[in-house]
Amino acid sequence: MSRLSPQQKTAAQLAGVAAVMLSLSFAAVPFYDWFCRVTGYGGTTAVAAAAPDTVLDRTMTIRFDGSREAGMPWEFKPVVREMELKIGETGLAFYEAYNPTDRVVAGTASYNVSPDTAGGFFTKIDCFCFTQQVLQPGERVQMPVTFYVDPAIVNDREGKYVKHITLSYTFHETELPAEQAALETPSDADVN
């Protein structure tokens, strides 16, 4: 029976540690995403199918912000910069996007709210940010977001002091969907 030398034991232990660390790194992204959605950490918003039945007399000012990733050719901005609504009341806001280029451009919006403590209480019912958006050359669209502020915010240790929430979106250019990309590539008949 052969025994492992101290160097072989150390090498085996280090390989085991490396394998565990690699496994944890793959699990970290989905776990972090889940954690942020559940807790609102980092300004991550919640998602619901409908607004609550409870609407409070207290109001909240919602501010809207829009930006683009470097290289994103669209123009992108909120239609209205600010609105006030009652906590629990359903709000509807629009963002406008314009593709000034001569090509089809696809984009996806990332989002967050500030202050971070409001993230778990700002709840989206429907949003353009849930899906990829595709704009034709010269196309201008208004994209809706339906939301509410969860009444539970008034009972939260930190949330009860929030008076203003800012909803921010950043649009990033993404690859065109396969069916759209096929329309963009010249056919063999065009080449000859």
Rank of each mutant, 00 (worst) to 15 (best):
A106D: 00
Y98F: 15
G43Y: 05
A109D: 10
L85Q: 08
L24N: 01
S2M: 09
G138N: 01
V162W: 11
M72S: 04
Q142R: 15
I125D: 12
Y41H: 13
T174K: 06
V141N: 04
Y169K: 10
A28R: 04
Y98R: 12
L22S: 07
E175Y: 05
A46W: 03
A118Q: 10
M1Y: 15
A19E: 03
G66D: 02
P73S: 09
D150V: 00
F64K: 02
M143K: 15
S23A: 10
E158I: 14
E82I: 05
R81V: 00
L4V: 12
D53M: 12
T61R: 10
Q133K: 15
D102L: 08
T174I: 06
M83Y: 09
R63T: 05
V80Q: 15
Y32W: 05
S5V: 07
A27W: 12
E158A: 15
K160F: 11
G119A: 08
S114V: 00
T101D: 07
Q136A: 08
Y98S: 03
F26E: 05
G107C: 14
A15N: 02
T101I: 01
V149S: 08
A19S: 08
D116I: 07
E89V: 00
G43Q: 02
M143W: 07
A46M: 06
G40M: 00
F31N: 05
I62C: 07
D150C: 04
A51D: 11
F171S: 06
T90R: 15
G91F: 03
Q180G: 09
P151V: 00
F121L: 12
P78I: 09
T170P: 02
V29H: 03
V162I: 13
A51C: 08
L167C: 08
H172R: 13
S5L: 05
P186A: 09
K77A: 03
K77L: 11
A11P: 00
N99K: 04
L92C: 04
P177R: 08
S67F: 04
F130D: 10
G159I: 15
V154D: 03
A49F: 05
F94A: 10
L135Q: 10
Y161H: 14
Y95S: 01
I125R: 05
F35N: 09
I153C: 10
P73H: 12
T170H: 00
A49N: 14
M21R: 02
V134S: 10
S114R: 06
K9D: 01
L56S: 04
Y32N: 14
T59W: 04
D53F: 09
T123F: 02
F76L: 03
F147W: 03
Q8H: 07
